[in-house]
Design a protein around this nucleic acid. Structure first.
Lengths: 115, 115
DNA sequence: CCAAGATACCTTGACAGGTGAGGTACTACG
DNA sequence: CGTAGTACCTCACCTGTCAAGGTATCTTGG
């Protein structure tokens, strides 16, 4: 049953910022990109997706504007800000630390000390 | 400042189960082992720690008994159950999947498709 | 001897993020 | 015309974290 969502919880914002680093996009498209990149195994729930974008905008990491398509559903495009870029690099480092920490804590380690 | 706790959120139970896999222990000791293993960079907050143990016991993954030390603070020891063992191996697999997924989503990837 | 710190446990209330369930509006297809 | 896809949004609920408070015992330094 899909990927345990609590494991992704701390990476939601970072994943979104990573996509916007490549250029402006809109929530729905980013989610479909994630689905494709994960080989169909993961995408955000819609409620999670849109609240994440709102959170990121409110904290000044991204800014938005309406697309001007005159056909089909309207799209809200997002741009990553300087603050968002910094946040991303920071989060990326934190992820690397956390990953190594968890790896060392959930692995089947050999004894590290006598006793 | 320390490790972002949201990144650890989904691994709390797995980390505890991993320790109990090596033998019975008590909450405080496990937390200090975590602190030592992380090189002093991480340990659970007490409230988080004890609620996690209670959660695991209520879900049948661990069982507890009071230690019989007749000196010092009393200790509640925990034993991992068969259910807990299965849970651990399951969680460990999920962690590996999640880790790879996040790695692929927060990395600076090269283009994967034309456009 | 007594204060401080370590050991070891516990609970409560607030808060943040994820999510099910619901909604809107447009386009395309058969 | 009904269904499915695109694309957005909101609300109420649940779960896990954590600051803050508490209890009790033992050890160590002044």
């Amino acid at each position: 049953m899909s990927i345990a969502s609590d494991l992704l919880r701390g990476s939601t914002d970072t994943i979104i910022l990573a996509h916007l680093l490549k250029g402006d996009s809109y929530a729905y498209e980013i989610n479909k990109n994630i689905l494709r990149k994960s080989g169909g195994s993961f995408e955000f729930k819609e409620a999670t997706l849109y609240t994440a974008f709102r959170r990121l905008e409110q904290s000044g990491c991204i800014s938005s504007y309406w697309g001007d398509e005159d056909t089909g559903a309207r799209r809200r495009y997002y741009t990553i800000t300087t603050k968002g870029r910094n946040m991303f690099y920071q989060n990326q480092k934190e992820w690397q630390n956390a990953r190594e920490l968890i790896d060392s804590l959930v692995g089947i380690w050999e004894d590290t000390d006598g006793k």
